[in-house]
């Protein structure tokens, strides 16, 4: 597949949050503030890109030759957990200011299903190395875009008078539903 259309597909039309429901927890949970949404998104992008390369090599050069493909879930989770831990230490040491901004989101990434989801999709879609790279970056940027847009809407919603039983999460999910409808219309770009 053409790399540009693959990028657009992963970025907009098949956005992982709105069509594959990955990363819903941070999407609904942490994205009520603009700044934290962007921070979370960028941290995810970084972790996904690096761990996508690692898991791709791990899968095709270790697991496949040794016929232990069934260990992929376990080993990928380990890679992600280690990556997150390492990033946390690196950023903390080299750039304390960035750590202060990203700090609280980093440990959350381990259990972010968007990360593991993208890694598993790379394998199950049978991408080549380059396609895998484009897909991972596109999807995680798509995640950033969506949680950013969503956080701006959430900030606005917080000021509105909403029926009590819709307050908080229900209205957030209904907003997400409308966003999903809009994003589905991008097909054909």
């Amino acid at each position: 597949m053409n790399l540009i259309s693959l990028f657009m597909m992963s970025f907009l039309t098949e956005n992982i949050v709105l069509t594959k429901f990955l990363g819903i927890c941070p999407f609904v949970g942490t994205s009520s503030k603009e700044k934290s949404a962007v921070g979370m998104g960028l941290a995810v992008t970084l972790v996904v890109t690096i761990s996508a390369i690692l898991t791709y090599l791990l899968y095709y050069y270790i697991l496949v030759p040794t016929h232990t493909e069934y260990l992929k879930t376990l080993s990928f989770v380990l890679v992600v957990a280690c990556m997150v831990q390492m990033m946390e230490m690196l950023i903390k040491k080299n750039n304390p200011k960035l750590y202060k901004n990203l700090g609280i989101y980093l440990p959350l990434i381990t259990t972010n299903c968007a990360v593991l989801g993208i890694l598993l999709l790379n394998i199950s879609n049978g991408y080549s190395f380059l396609e895998m790279l484009v897909y991972s970056i596109g999807s995680s940027l798509g995640f950033t875009l969506v949680i950013y847009i969503f956080s701006t809407i959430r900030e606005n919603l917080a000021r509105r008078n909403i029926p009590y039983c819709f307050k908080g999460y229900p209205i957030a999910l209904i907003t997400a539903s409308i966003m999903a409808l809009l994003f589905a219309r991008y097909v054909g770009i």
Binding site: L18, T19, K20, F21, P163, Y164, C165, F166, Y169, P170, I171, A172, L173, I174, A176, S177, I178, A180, L181, A184
Partner: peptide
């Protein structure tokens, strides 16, 4: 479709909230 999933869960969650809290909503 995916959009419907969000909508259904959102609405069911609202209904569940309404039932669970019963008449207590005055307190918030």
């Amino acid at each position: 479709s995916p959009a419907g999933a969000f909508l259904v869960v959102g609405i069911l969650m609202a209904i569940f909230n309404a039932i669970r809290r019963g008449g207590k909503h005055e307190s918030n």
